Amino acid sequence: MISNASLKRNNTAQVGIGTLIIFIAMVLIAAVAASVLIQTSGTLQQQAQSTGKQATQEVSSNLVVKNIEGVRAKTSSTSMASNISLLKVKVGLNVGSSPVDLNQLIISITDGTNTNDLIYANNDKTYGNAMANFSSSETAATNLLYLLNGTQSSPGANGMYFFTVQKIRDEDVSFSQANPIMNTGDLVTIYISVVSDGDLSYTTIDGVTTGGTQKDSNLDLAPRSTVTIVMTPEAGATSMAEFVTPSSYGTRETIQLYP
């Protein structure tokens, strides 16, 4: 015979101040834990956004070397230096790049024997002073003359420590000698002095009258020289251009070197 099972309902519960204390403690612990999680997630989100922004800038903000020409110093059309005296580096920005301040750009150039680390002529932070005779109100050609001819007690000959820039395309008028800011679409020519110690008596370099007083750059770009140029902006990818000078310069004043 099967009997019907009876169910007993238990209506008893924990009561008293002890139970209340435990309940309040659990609520407080849950609240503290939730606060910590919210704060931690907010901090992580801020760090992730900052890291993502920096990573994007590092990848997208970089200079692109379009081409490089070498110019020989001369006194006349038939009397030219045996080595290249000036490099004209045409530079633009990669697509989608953030603005680049050339005042913070470092250019390292080596001829295989010696290396010069160059900064923009108006930068007075690295060496404690800007390039001697540099003027933000002068033209790029005038500052190029000072680059080739100028010297100072510290750090020394301008061509060994500085570079100057000439703008070619600047649609938003953001670029000036005082504030050389490049945006996407801008195109500039960077002048790098490579005057050799054996070519100091010639009177003209790229149309600039030096009068034979140009200073030695400590570099020698003779034929068959291997030259490496590395451009390191304040933020973004490093750009590099490497080339070998021709076996003979012949009678040419301007020589295409890169690409």
Rank of each mutant, 00 (worst) to 15 (best):
N103F: 05
Q49N: 14
N183G: 07
F162W: 12
L257C: 00
D117V: 09
D124P: 05
S98T: 11
S77C: 15
S61Y: 05
K90Y: 08
Q177W: 03
A5E: 05
S85V: 12
S137D: 12
Y120Q: 08
P233D: 00
N183M: 13
Q57T: 14
I229R: 00
A48I: 05
V15C: 02
A132N: 11
R9H: 13
V195C: 15
F162H: 05
T189F: 11
K90A: 14
L219K: 01
L148N: 05
R224N: 14
V95Q: 13
I84T: 06
L221I: 01
A235Q: 09
L37A: 11
M1H: 03
I22C: 03
A30D: 01
E242N: 10
N122G: 15
R252S: 11
E171N: 11
A132C: 07
A55T: 11
Q49R: 08
P233V: 00
A13N: 06
A141C: 02
L102I: 04
I24V: 07
A33Q: 05
T210I: 13
S174E: 13
V195F: 13
R72W: 10
S41V: 07
V227D: 00
Q166I: 03
Q14E: 10
P155I: 10
N103C: 05
I181A: 11
K74D: 13
E138N: 14
N10A: 10
V165P: 07
I119H: 13
T115A: 10
I181E: 11
L200D: 08
S41W: 06
S136A: 14
I106G: 07
S153P: 01
K215R: 14
F163P: 08
A132Q: 11
V89W: 02
S3M: 03
S176D: 13
V230C: 01
G156E: 04
L219Q: 04
A5D: 08
S137V: 10
V89G: 05
Y161G: 12
S3R: 06
V165G: 08
A13F: 14
T209D: 15
R9N: 12
T110I: 08
L105T: 03
I168P: 04
G207R: 02
S248W: 00
S225N: 02
T12H: 04
G92S: 14
V64N: 12
T75G: 15
P99W: 02
I29A: 03
F163S: 13
L102V: 04
Y202L: 15
T213M: 08
I68Q: 03
M231C: 01
N67Y: 13
D186N: 09
L7S: 12
S85Q: 08
F23K: 01
T113L: 11
T51A: 15
I168M: 03
L102G: 02
Y191N: 09
Q256M: 00
E234P: 00
E171W: 06
A237I: 01
N149R: 09
T245R: 01
F243V: 00
D172A: 13
Q152P: 02
R169G: 06
T184P: 03
I192M: 13
T126G: 05
T56I: 07
S108M: 09
I68E: 05
V165N: 04
E69Y: 15
I106D: 10
S82F: 03
N123D: 15
D172N: 14
L37C: 03
N11H: 06
L86E: 08
L187F: 11
A31G: 03
T40W: 04
P246Q: 00
T51L: 12
S98L: 11
F175S: 06
L63I: 07
S174V: 08
G18E: 03
A241N: 00
T142A: 12
I2A: 15
N123S: 12
